[in-house]
């Protein structure tokens, strides 16, 4: 290997570390800001009591319950649809088929729909046309539409990465396609599914505008999926932008959200790993 390539190699290494440091630094800058303002607000009672005085005092228990229900509906719909679509696109139809091209185009278009449009659409379609009103169900279904593009794209990339030998080997053994999909391809695609899930859950938990119009603003503890329930980002938004004096609790809620994300992301990779038997993380 010649000297210039050694030099290039060093430069590249250096550049990689610099970028990584810059991204990490910015992240910790934001995190520091959040923790500095929000950490002292967090306590057991903050997690277990309901909001009072428009959220300035009290905790976020009902918000956490509503958020998990919304997320549950969202993932319950998005995962089967998303993984199914990805399998269909990558395994059932020819790669260059017209149908596949159109589905991918429409997914990219879906990815760009602004969240407020999702919200207004969800309020009309799920809320009025299907009659779910302001409810956790409406919110979860709207979110499912939002996370589908990213989930499908990532999962499809996972299927693509499965080597051709797996498919051929499976077929040669006379396995049914369902069996090949379940036992050979899904595990191979598990990493893609995790990436899609992580990005999808992130998007879902971070969503505000789409949920204000669908799952709504009510902070009462929900008793069914047809109740309105305020999700965590809506709560943060309202406290930060709409309720004077809500800042302290907005920061505390944001810290809870970040802890929640770390928990769910770990859970997602762990679950995919055990359930699908794939290796999801290095």
């Amino acid at each position: 290997m010649n000297r210039s390539s050694v030099k290039a190699d060093r430069t590249a290494t250096f550049l990689c570390w610099i970028v990584a440091f810059a991204v990490t630094g910015t992240f910790f800058w934001i995190l520091w800001d959040l923790l500095g303002h929000g950490f002292k607000g967090i306590s057991w009672s903050f997690l277990t009591t309901q909001p009072r005085d428009a959220g300035r005092s009290g905790g976020i228990s009902s918000v956490l319950v509503s958020t998990s229900l919304i997320l549950g509906v969202c993932l319950g719909v998005a995962i089967p649809t998303g993984v199914g679509t990805a399998a269909f696109l990558s395994e059932w139809i020819p790669r260059k088929s017209r149908v596949g091209r159109w589905i991918r185009r429409s997914l990219d278009l879906l990815a760009a729909v602004p969240s407020i449009v999702f919200g207004l659409f969800g309020a009309v379609f799920f809320g009025e046309v299907l009659g779910f009103g302001f409810s956790i169900l409406s919110g979860g279904l709207t979110l499912a539409l939002m996370v589908l593009p990213i989930l499908i794209r990532a999962t499809e990339a996972g299927f693509r990465s499965a080597s051709e030998e797996l498919r051929l080997g499976g077929a040669a053994l006379g396995l049914r396609r369902a069996t090949i999909l379940r036992h050979l391809l899904l595990p191979a695609a598990s990493h893609g599914i995790v990436v899609g899930l992580v990005l999808g859950v992130g998007r879902a938990l971070a969503e505000t505008a789409a949920l204000i119009f669908t799952s709504g603003y009510v902070t009462r503890m929900p008793s069914s999926l047809l109740d309105s329930g305020r999700s965590i980002s809506v709560h943060i938004y309202d406290l930060a932008m709409n309720v004077p004096g809500g800042e302290a609790n907005a920061y505390a809620t944001a810290v809870v959200l970040i802890l929640l994300l770390i928990l769910i992301n770990s859970l997602a990779s762990w679950a995919t790993q055990t359930w699908l038997g794939g290796r999801s993380l290095p």
Partner: peptide
């Protein structure tokens, strides 16, 4: 990493 290892442990 040996991604494919997991495939056969299905």
């Amino acid at each position: 990493g040996p991604e494919s290892a997991g495939v056969f442990s299905a």
